[in-house]
Design a protein around this nucleic acid. Structure first.
Lengths: 155, 155
DNA sequence: TCATTTTATATCGTATGCGATGTATATGTC
DNA sequence: GACATATACATCGCATACGATATAAAATGA
């Protein structure tokens, strides 16, 4: 009596994603820890290196993280001197997050160390291309699904 | 001055995986919450539905979770009456986790509810096949990388 | 204008997820 | 059998991640 394939642990897409996310975090920790950074904290910096001085809401959207998750991360980045927080003068509700000199100065080094680590595994690059595109599709789908849920109740 | 493509937030494989994992957890919560289950708790049940009465160590390996993460989850499952814990008679260090009657009885219902939810999104099924295989490759790679790290220091 | 509603953050409680450490039990070696 | 080592689990501290709630400021509208 074999069970439905889709519901065996090893065959589940969601489980594969779950495991990959955990493994990635572990891998990145090796590089980021010496800088005193965690993976989510690094993501915030990554967003700001692309475009500095974002409002919290913009970072929240870029990373798909709620304020409840993001705010503690931002506070830690402030404490550790990576970013600053200032109220927007145009909209006093909004808070602008900006990179410090330290954060700007360290971008290259962190990026190099990460590339070094990843280079140890050429296969990662090979796999990368197609998978990335598919995952982006998946993410759009999941996001839609999650946003649809409220309406869903009324069907 | 465009930056290296690989290091733009949106283009990063790890970020795509990270987001997908978060979205999946949200999606599953909708189905699992009425049962009083979280996604990791459900994963434990999934493992046990495949094969009951596993030792903690075995579950830890199946889910790629350390004892520090797994133990609190198991304790909650015990508290809520989904599984039992008993010391192995053969090896008094080992703890055997077994499904309760409630857990066995609810498997079908939970599985049905999950399939219902997923069925709302046919596209998920279409994407699934290839992506799953690729993610499994990715996971093997990442796991190897993570296990290699210790030796890595001596190169 | 002024009450209502929306929006941007902040805070809180619960549940992971991890590395580090502690403890009891097996195991291997002599 | 004694003892060093390895293994299985437990516990702790830190850092997310989420939903729910709170608060202040902006936008809306009668």
């Amino acid at each position: 009596m074999k069970k439905i394939k889709a519901f065996l642990l090893e065959d589940q897409l969601c489980f594969a994603v779950y495991k990959a996310a955990n493994q990635f975090t572990k891998l990145y920790r090796q590089v980021l820890e010496p800088f005193g950074l965690t993976y989510p904290q690094y993501l915030v910096l990554l967003a700001l290196w692309e475009q500095d001085s974002l409002v919290v809401k913009q970072i929240s959207e870029k990373l798909s993280l709620g304020i409840g998750t993001l705010n503690p991360i931002l506070n830690k980045l402030v404490d550790k001197g990576w970013v600053t927080k200032e109220t927007s003068s145009k909209d006093k509700r909004a808070v602008i997050i900006s990179l410090t000199e330290k954060a700007r100065a360290t971008e290259t080094l962190i990026t190099e160390k990460l590339m070094e680590k990843m280079a140890h595994c050429d296969a990662l690059t090979v796999i990368d291309g197609d998978l990335r595109a598919q995952l982006q599709n998946l993410n759009e789908l999941l996001t839609q699904l999650n946003n649809m849920e409220v309406k869903d109740e009324y069907l």
